[in-house]
Design a protein around this nucleic acid. Structure first.
Length: 411
RNA sequence: GUGAGUAUAGCUCAGUUGGCAGAGCACCAGGUUGUGGCCCUGGGGGUCGUGGGUUCAAGUCCCACUACUCACCCCA
């Protein structure tokens, strides 16, 4: 039996990184008033088709979609926003005072695996509902940035852009199409296809000829409506006020249809081709599009696997007490129980019949702070030996005073 | 979906012009009687990714398949 392609076990050896990532992310997001929301991993296919966009690559060719036993088409979530919006509408969260949410969990996309790209991957994301104020756009970037700082991830750059709204983007899209149409023959095959479907994506093409042509393409800033323009300018002002460095990238576009106005990406060049660590933006029409009352929205999503590759930290895996039992396991268990239960210390009782030497070796490998030795000699004398592995010394303690003695040690 | 590279022990990898399957790390056991790290000695572990083919003989050469890695694409 082998694991599915593009899927990965997260092993005990690596779990410290994951738990640290989740802990620091939660602390950061909760300190800014975000509440966790947990939505199902499986949703109706139509949610993503309508939310993410029928013509996006995600919906067209990357979703894990199948029929359930009732014949309903269901899909493993490829991203977190659609489900969160659905939950917001379904549960009438517009009447709940907290409108800022975060999620952590697995997402699924059927893509060819490569560095920083898996078929099951994990995202940490936030969503803010019902706040039009451009100040909150800046807050979203700030929260993302602080989270990354706390994870000790550096050398990142923030790129932003204004991609307009349904009032102004179609006009820009049309102009862009006209422009690229005149260079049609020079474009790569992918871009020829994009010309009809989503000309904005040509701006993002890495093909040399395409990007050269794109350089002289009409700029979206010349077409955005006054509303979008004013919003974007305010976001920038707030970012500057918060001391967040950013670059404007007029070629930054998003692959999901729901984005409007302000979009951003946080990028590293340490991860090869998949350098986007975090990305997000505003989606002012999505709630309405999915059947809710007109409600604005903004959020971001971060790729956990990518964050983990970039996290810098000192690993410190250990246990507090290793119990080297030479015969009387019952007594060892009772002693260990006291430590774990009342003192909240991590304990490991050795149940394998090993030599003392091999137990000492194992305790060393587990990076135990203390080894409690209890064998025939100790039993006769009514004591236990507690060895301090870091200082390499040991003491004999009367068995009745053991817990008391250890309580004192940790005070 | 496309391209390139890789596939030998739990891990990282050697393996000459085809001729008995190797190292380091990890694991286990010893190095006097019940004490870790360093060192020394020994041990267990491999259908050489899978299936064909060439050959007296294939880890090695040929073909197919599969998986992994990176890149395209796409995105977090």
């Amino acid at each position: 039996m082998e694991i599915l392609r593009g899927f990965k076990d997260i092993l005990p050896q690596d779990i410290n990184k994951w738990q640290r990532l989740e802990k620091l992310a939660r602390e950061t997001l909760e300190s800014f008033g975000y509440k966790e929301i947990r939505t199902p991993i499986l949703e109706k296919t139509s949610l993503f088709a309508r939310g993410v966009g029928e013509t996006t690559d995600i919906v067209e060719k990357e979703m894990y979609t199948f029929l359930d036993k009732s014949g309903e088409s269901v899909t493993l979530r490829p991203e977190g926003t659609a489900g969160t919006v659905r939950a917001f509408i379904d549960n009438h969260l517009e009447n709940y005072p907290f409108k800022k949410y975060y999620y952590i969990g697995p997402m699924f996309r059927y893509e060819r695996p490569q560095k920083g790209r898996l078929r099951q991957f994990h995202q940490i994301g936030i969503e803010v509902f019902g706040i039009d104020n451009p100040a909150v756009d800046a807050e979203v970037v700030l929260v993302d940035k602080i989270m990354l700082d706390r994870l000790n991830i550096s050398d990142l750059r923030i790129e932003i852009n204004n991609i307009g709204c349904p009032n102004c983007r179609p006009e820009y899209s049309k102009k862009l199409k006209e422009y690229f149409q005149t260079h049609r023959e020079e474009l790569c095959d992918d871009c020829k296809r994009r010309l009809d479907r989503n000309p904005l994506r040509i701006l993002d093409c890495k093909n040399k000829t395409c990007s050269r042509i794109a350089k002289n393409a009409p700029k979206i800033t010349e077409f955005v409506c006054d509303n979008c323009k004013a919003h974007y300018e305010k976001v920038k002002e707030n970012l500057v006020a918060l001391g967040i460095d950013f670059q404007e990238n007029p070629h930054l576009v998003r692959g999901l249809d729901y984005y409007t106005k302000f979009v951003f990406e946080i990028i590293t060049d340490k991860l090869g081709a998949q350098g986007t660590v975090s990305a997000g933006g505003r989606y002012d029409n999505l709630v309405e599009q999915l059947g809710g009352k007109p409600t604005s929205g903004i959020g971001f999503a971060s790729g956990c696997e990518r964050l983990i590759e970039l996290m810098v930290y000192d690993e410190d895996q250990n246990i507090d007490y290793y119990f080297a039992c030479l015969e009387d396991y019952t007594t060892c268990m009772k002693l260990a129980k006291g430590l774990a239960d009342s003192l909240k210390r991590s304990v490991y009782v050795e149940y394998e019949n090993r030599s003392l030497k091999s137990m000492m070796k194992k305790a060393d490998k587990m990076n135990a702070n203390y080894v409690v030795i209890y064998g025939e000699n100790e039993k006769e004398k009514g004591i236990v030996i507690v060895k301090d592995m870091k200082r390499s010394n040991q003491e004999e303690i009367e068995i009745e005073k053991f817990l008391e003695n250890e309580v004192a040690r940790w005070q």
